[in-house]
């Protein structure tokens, strides 16, 4: 059995950067967006690492990373990601950010996937993050799945166990910190990943060098995709001003603090 796994993974500003919305010509944008260091979307990165592990278990399998974003930023992020796992890159050059419409992003990704030569859709597992750290909508991957005609979809996935017959068991996050367990007959399927169970792989220069044979050419031939907004209009985008009047209690003994806290816990 072999798998064809396509991981859709966008790039987002490094999560701890200062973000500030500004009014751009096409709606809101982030201040100094091109200056901010970017990383692979964290949940999508989990998907990539899980995919690489699966591919390594099933000889003959292949892994593509489909990424949409400004080309220069994609190039930078790839220099980090390409050291971690082996993949073939499909790059789509687009001025995408969290304010862009998810369905337009999905169309561009689906076109990119449809154009992958040698992709066998009967073996296709479409991976990605269940939400992004930018738009955080949980819409893109599902829509790509629909556009590709895949009707077995999973969201908030933390684990997949492939079986020899091609079927697999999958754990999805549901309410209350629990997982829903399902068995799917097999590919094609869409899996939107949460954090999974794998640590971030180490940087491996040999993997990096092997990936470079496809990464740079893929970036060089990345097609530009203009994203439409599907009638979406932003009326405002702002930072919250939730400054509280903090009471700082410095000189109270732990026992007295505990007393106060217990009273607070017990109030309705």
């Amino acid at each position: 059995m072999s798998l064809h796994i396509v991981v859709c993974a966008g790039i987002v500003p490094d999560p701890l950067q200062t973000l500030e919305p500004i009014a751009g010509p096409n709606g809101p944008a982030l201040k100094n967006e091109m200056m901010l260091p970017a990383v692979l979307d964290p949940w999508a990165a989990s998907a990539l690492y899980e995919a690489a592990t699966l591919v390594s278990k099933f000889p003959g399998s292949r892994l593509w990373l489909v990424s949409l974003g400004p080309k220069a930023k994609l190039q930078q992020v790839m220099m980090t990601i390409a050291q971690k796992v082996t993949f073939e890159l499909v790059a789509v050059d687009s001025a995408s950010n969290g304010f862009a419409d998810a369905s337009a992003t999905a169309s561009a990704l689906a076109s990119g996937i449809a154009a992958i030569p040698d992709l066998d859709r009967t073996k296709l597992l479409l991976f990605g993050g269940w939400e992004s750290a930018s738009r955080g909508a949980g819409v893109t991957l599902q829509t790509v799945g629909e556009l590709l005609g895949i009707t077995d979809q999973f969201a908030g996935v933390d684990q997949i166990d492939m079986r020899e017959d091609g079927s697999f068991e999958v754990l999805e996050r549901v309410e209350g910190g629990k997982h829903q367990a399902s068995v799917c007959a097999g590919a094609p399927a869409v899996l939107g990943w949460a954090t999974g169970n794998l640590p971030e792989p180490h940087n491996n220069p040999q993997i990096g060098m092997a990936n470079m044979r496809t990464v740079m050419p893929a970036l060089q031939r990345a097609k530009q995709a203009a994203l439409t907004n599907d009638g979406q209009q932003y009326l405002s985008a702002s930072l919250p001003s939730q400054q509280r009047q903090t009471r700082v209690v410095r000189d109270l003994a732990p026992d007295a603090i505990a007393q106060e806290l217990v009273e607070w816990i017990r109030t309705q």
Binding site: T246, V249, R250, P254, A258, V262, I265
Partner: peptide
């Protein structure tokens, strides 16, 4: 302490939570 919480206790959480647990058990 700077506008993110309503109350901040400057204290050792080990000591405070131990006492909180004790009080909660009593009550």
């Amino acid at each position: 302490a700077r506008g993110k919480a309503d109350v901040v206790y400057i204290a050792d959480a080990f000591k405070v939570i131990a006492k909180v647990n004790e009080l909660l058990a009593l009550k």
